[in-house]
């Protein structure tokens, strides 16, 4: 049987990869891809904690995973709408070039 530590390590690695993507990618869409990876890492943790808890009948882990799905869907739809809107106005999706608030 696979111990809990393996799942947690997988989730931590996935989270770090997503974090790397968010920090270093220039394209705004690619940054959102990194956010998705991080949310998935969180979900692996939530489901793993449900599976490895002693109270299997309390479904907290799975319920929170489902709420993370809803939040991810909301985040992606609004985020991509913002990217497309920014692309229309400023003709760029490179995050570094969207710097009107900076001076």
């Amino acid at each position: 049987m696979v111990p809990l530590s393996w799942y947690l390590t997988l989730a931590a690695a996935l989270f770090s990869i997503g974090l790397f993507g968010v920090l270093v990618r220039r394209n705004a869409v690619a940054i959102l891809l990194g956010v998705e990876l991080m949310l998935n890492a969180v979900n692996i943790n939530l489901v793993a904690f449900w599976r490895y808890s002693d109270a299997l009948t309390s479904m907290g882990g799975q319920v929170f995973a489902i709420i993370v799905f809803a939040v991810a869907a909301a985040e992606v739809s609004v985020g991509l709408a913002l990217v497309i809107s920014a692309y229309r106005r400023r003709n760029t999706v490179i995050a570094d070039e969207l710097d009107m608030l900076k001076w």
Binding site: L4, S5, T9, A12, F15, L23, Y52
Partner: peptide
């Protein structure tokens, strides 16, 4: 930063008592 986050997470988790728990 990513490597440090992973190392930090792994270090923190390895000290936790439930880390190597096996599922029923």
């Amino acid at each position: 930063v990513a490597v440090l986050v992973f190392a930090g997470l792994a270090f923190m988790l390895s000290g936790w008592s439930g880390f190597s728990k096996v599922a029923a």
